[in-house]
Design a protein around this nucleic acid. Sequence first.
RNA 1: GGGGGGUUAGCUCAGUUGGUUAGAGCAGAGCGCUCAUAACGCUUUGGUCACAGGUUCGAGUCCUGUACCCCCUACCA
Length: 577
Amino acid sequence: MKRILITSALPYINGIKHLGNLVGSQLPADVYARFMRAKGHEVAFICATDEHGTPAELAAIDNNTSTEEYCEKMWQVQKDLSEKFFLSFDFFGRSSSPSNHELTKQFALQLNKNGLLKRVEEKQLFSKEDNRFLPDRYVIGTCPECSYERARGDQCENCTRQLEASELINPRSVLSGSKNLELIKTDHLYLMQSKLKDKLLAWIESKNNWPIITTSIAKKWLLDGEGLQDRSITRDLKWGIAVEKDGRPWEGMENKVFYVWFDAPIAYIASTLDWATSKKQHPEYWKTWWLDDHGAKDVHYVQFMAKDNIPFHTLSFPATLLGAKQSWKLVDYIKGFNWLTYEGGKFSTSQKRGVFMNQAIDLFPSDYWRWWLLSNAPENADSDFTWTSFQSCINKDLADVLGNFVSRLAKFAASKFGEAIPKGSKYTNEEFEAISEIEKIFKDYNDAMTKIEIRKATSHLRKIWSKGNEYLQRSQPWMKIKTNEAEAAKIVRFGFNLMLFYSEISEPFIPETCLKIKSCVGKSKDSVEWSFFKDDFETIFERVKFGAKFKPLQNLFKKIDNKEALDLEKRFAGTDD
RNA sequence: GGGGGGUUAGCUCAGUUGGUUAGAGCAGAGCGCUCAUAACGCUUUGGUCACAGGUUCGAGUCCUGUACCCCCUACCA
C-alpha cells in the first residue's frame, strides 16, 4: 500500500466554474483519487477555494456584501457543486483559513531568515476615489502605441502590446472611471527565485517522466533571457494574509498582504492540516504528508492543473518550498491539461458563453458530464465541447452500450426468473472466453489509469462494457430459455456478475450510476478494492449471491434527442455583446 | 522576433524504442438477432499519415525547410 497525495488546482472564489475549469483539474484528479483508493492505497485528495486578491474584493462589492461574507457564501456554493459532481475530495478547504494565514506567514519568515527575500521599490497607481491601489488590469487608458482608447494596464487588446499601467495616456480606473490617479512609490517583498535557479533546474531535470509540455514550460522560464526572475510576493490590498512577522507588523510592509499566488499553493498544505484536524488526527499527522523528515518521503504526490498554472507549480511554489529549507515535500508528478473550448470558441464568463457547473447539473445527471468531459479531456491538445458531440457520446456510450446492457439483462431476468438472481449451471467456455477477453482489456485499462491517461482509459472501459453485449449476443439466453433453463439461468447469473464488475471498475468515471447498478445487484455501497482482482480473475465473476433479490432498474440513461440538443445549443450560445 | 504544441479515414482521435497489408469510436453500407432505451452483434466502404526534400535496406515514426492552426513569451521606431 502506498500513500498518495493528490491536489487539484484551487478554483478561484469569484463565481461558479465552467466545464473547462472542471475538466482541467478537479475532475481528472477525482478519477485518479478514486482509482488509487480502489487499488487499496491511502489517499489524501485535497482541494480548496483560492480566495484572496482584488477580483474577490470587487465581486463582493458587486454583491453588496463584505469580502468575508462573499467568500464564505461562494465557498459553500462551490463545495455543494463539487458534491453534486461527486468530486470525492477528502477535504475541501479555503485559502483564507486560519491555518493558511499561519503557514503562509511562517513560510515568509523562513524565506526571510534564509536570505531569500528582498525589498524592492515599485510605483503603483493609486485611485483616490476608489481608495485603493489599482492592479494593472484595472486601469484603462489610451495606448501609447496605437492610440486605442480602451487599452488595459497590462496589455493593449488592440495592438497586443504589453504595457505598464504607468505608460497609459490619460489613465482611469476601471472601477469608478476616476481619472484622479496618482503614481505612488510602494515597497514590496520579492522572493529571490534567481538564487534557487540551479536547485530548481536540477529538480526539473530529474523529472524525466513528466509530459514534455510541463518540463518545457518550466525550462523556458528558468533558462530564457536573463533566467528566472525574482517575484513580488506582496500586494497593496486589504483582503488577504497580512504581511506580519511573529504577530507584529513587518516593518515597511504595513497594510500589505501576501500576493494570492504566494499563499494559494500553501493552502494545499494548510488544507491537509485542516483535514487532519477535522479527522481528529494526531497533531503531527499532516506532516507525514508534507515533510520528508516526517515520513512524506514515501508519499507519491500528484498535482492536477490546467496549463496556465504550470509555471507556478513547477517554479514559484517549489521555490517557496525549497527556499524554506525544511524538507518540504515536492510534487512527484504534474498532470497538466490544455483548454476546453466551447463550440469552437472560448468559454466566457462575461459573455455567458458555455456551460457552467450549476447549469450543467440542472440539465443532466453528473455522470453525463463526467463521462463526456473525461472521455474528451484536453490531454494532448485543446478539445472542443459541442452539443452534437455530447449528445452522440452520451447516447452511444452510456445509453446504448452500458445502459442497454444492464437494462436488457435485468428485464430478461425479471421476466423469466422473477426478481431474484438465479443460479443455473456451471460456467463453460462461453464465460471463460468472455472473462479472458475482459481480463486482457482490464489490464490495459489499469495501465492507462496508472499512467493517468484519461482518454485512453475511457476507451478501454467502453470496450469492456461492450463485451457484455457481445457475450449476450453469442450466448442468446432468449433462445436457451426455451430448451435449457439452467443454461439460461447461468447466462443471467454471469450477466449480473458482469454488472457488478462494471459498477466497480467504472466507479472513477461514473460513480453515481455505479451506485445504482451496485444496489441493483444487491451489493452494499462499499467500494470494492481492485487489488482483489489480480488474485484470481475468474472468481470475481462468482460474487453475486444466488437468490438475492434485485430491483429492476429504470433506464439508467435517458437519451438526448436532436431537438433537445439543438435547443441547448441555442440556449447556451451566449450574448454577442 | 524567440520558444513550445499541433497538422493521420467524412468527424473525434490512437499510433509504443523507425520494421512487413496504418488502427479505434462515431457517421455510411450490408447482414443477423429480437432479451433490451428502434437498443445489440457480425461484416464492410473510407487514408499519397499537411507539403517538399534528406538520412536509412526500410519513415506516420528521425533530420531540414515550407504552409496553416493553437499556446506561451519578448520587443524597436
